[in-house]
């Protein structure tokens, strides 16, 4: 996927654990883990809003577009 998530970077910057984030936004750890590992196929605006709200950041801080390297 050319879209990568920098959730772990933002969590480190805010000194927050994944468990705390999951509790505060009401999303299961399993789902947040899928997002963090970049295995998610899509993200809902509501989820993105909740994450940005808690981490006090912009969607661009969490999501990044990187061109895929040709094999």
């Amino acid at each position: 996927m050319p879209i990568i998530t920098n959730l772990d970077v933002m969590l480190a910057k805010r000194k927050m654990s994944l468990t705390e984030l999951s509790e505060r936004i009401g999303i299961t750890m399993a789902n947040l883990s899928i997002l963090k590992k970049g295995k998610a196929k899509a993200i809902r605006f509501t989820t993105l809003t909740a994450i940005c709200n808690i981490l006090e950041c912009q969607p661009g801080d969490i999501l990044e577009y990187k061109e895929e390297e040709p094999n």
């Binding site: 999303i27 789902n31 295995k39 998610a40 899509a42 993200i43 989820t47």
Partner: peptide, 8 residues
Amino acid sequence: REENELTI
């Protein structure tokens, strides 16, 4: 179904 399951 897969897409739905992997939509966070």
